[in-house]
Design a protein around this nucleic acid. Structure first.
Lengths: 202, 202
DNA sequence: CGAGTATGGTACCGTTCGGTAACATGTCCT
DNA sequence: AGGACATGTTACCGAACGGTACCATACTCG
């Protein structure tokens, strides 16, 4: 396994950002771009403008750093639901559509590498890994939010709808990184309309 | 990253199977179960009932072994198309449905770890890696086969249909390993019907 | 000022990694 | 029989890994 170009984003040290945040930022970049197992702690510390010792003063182990990275990523995603509620207050169907649209845009956009949480699930299959708890809880939360929207919108079998939409988006993410994202947004929008429509007639 | 239980399937040496095949078999098992980067060449050789030296007599490097493993996996998947044609001769729509059904069953089945090719794409994001060529060519081939079936069945926009079905299945695979596979088969069948239906009225 | 605390720097530990050298066994074909 | 060739065995290499000890700085705050 060849090495990758390291330390692309050198946070230039004294931006008044405390080292823990710098470390998490650098870890996020590197983990997402190159994969978790492909990135060593030394590279993370260097990219964060600090050193390994400081890293281990803030995180008990690499595995814990990984878990914290995923928690951070999950939190970002969670925050999006609130924005949706604000943009389409009291209109759950519009919120669902907006969510799909945002995801489609995100996927179809530049060279992404899919969902950080899902990628981590592929890279860390060990049952006991601290990251797995984070991943599974996040996915459950997301599913619950979608179900709630679905039944607020009066659609039939909202749990099934949620899973179907979830499936779609997850598929789009993994597809984008193995075959590219040409016209993927259009496919997603069309599909989601077909799926939603199939839940309107009970 | 903790170690995993190694050498579950010890091919017991003298089954008259040549070492190259044993190595590929063991590599397939271990790579799929634990992830490519998590498995070392030594563990593969041991699980194959041989040693590292023999491995390197048959494969130029670990990366090449990985590529060969993926080629093998792709070949298995390709072979399935022929079985479909045989089971439903001259009925492309039935072949599509059977394909979806088979994939659904495969995913909903026991604790799987998704598509080996897609997992490899997540684990090996480096542009130059020999595995990436294998992955991308396989996905293209699969897409082409689906498109051909779609247009033989007289469905509208067969390329879009192919992508939509592909998205669905890929999503199911990755979902299964991050949240589990309860009722996933039902979701898939229902969704695919909705998607196919949306392509019947031009 | 002076003590306490957080950080940076560097050297190091034991282990594992991918990969190789050299030599001892087979096993098969003529 | 005898040579050719594929395999098994062991030991080893340099590099990278996750993780730690130790000490020199900075900065804060009484």
């Amino acid at each position: 396994m060849g090495n990758f170009a390291k330390a692309v984003l050198n946070t230039d040290k004294n931006d008044k950002i405390p080292p823990r945040a710098r470390l998490l930022g650098a870890a996020g970049e590197l983990f997402y771009r190159h994969g978790i197992r492909a990135v060593g702690v030394e590279a993370i510390a260097e990219a964060a403008g600090t050193n390994k010792m400081t890293l281990y003063r803030h995180f008990a182990s690499k595995d814990e750093l990984v878990a914290e990275y995923l928690r951070q990523e999950a939190h970002k995603a969670d925050a999006y639901w609130d924005k949706l509620e604000a943009a389409h207050p009291g209109d759950p169907l519009a919120q669902i559509r907006a969510w799909v649209k945002a995801m489609a845009a995100h996927v179809a956009n530049c060279e992404e590498r899919g969902c950080a949480l899902a990628n981590a699930a592929v890279e860390l299959p060990e049952k006991g890994h601290p990251a797995r708890a984070v991943i599974e809880e996040f996915k459950r939360r997301q599913r619950a939010a979608l179900i709630r929207l679905g039944q607020s919108a009066g659609l039939s079998e909202p749990d099934m709808l949620a899973d179907e939409l979830h499936l779609m988006l997850e598929g789009a993410r993994v597809t984008a990184q193995s075959v590219g994202a040409d016209g993927l947004g259009a496919r997603l929008m069309r599909m989601s309309e077909a799926v939603i429509a199939s839940h309107r007639a009970s």
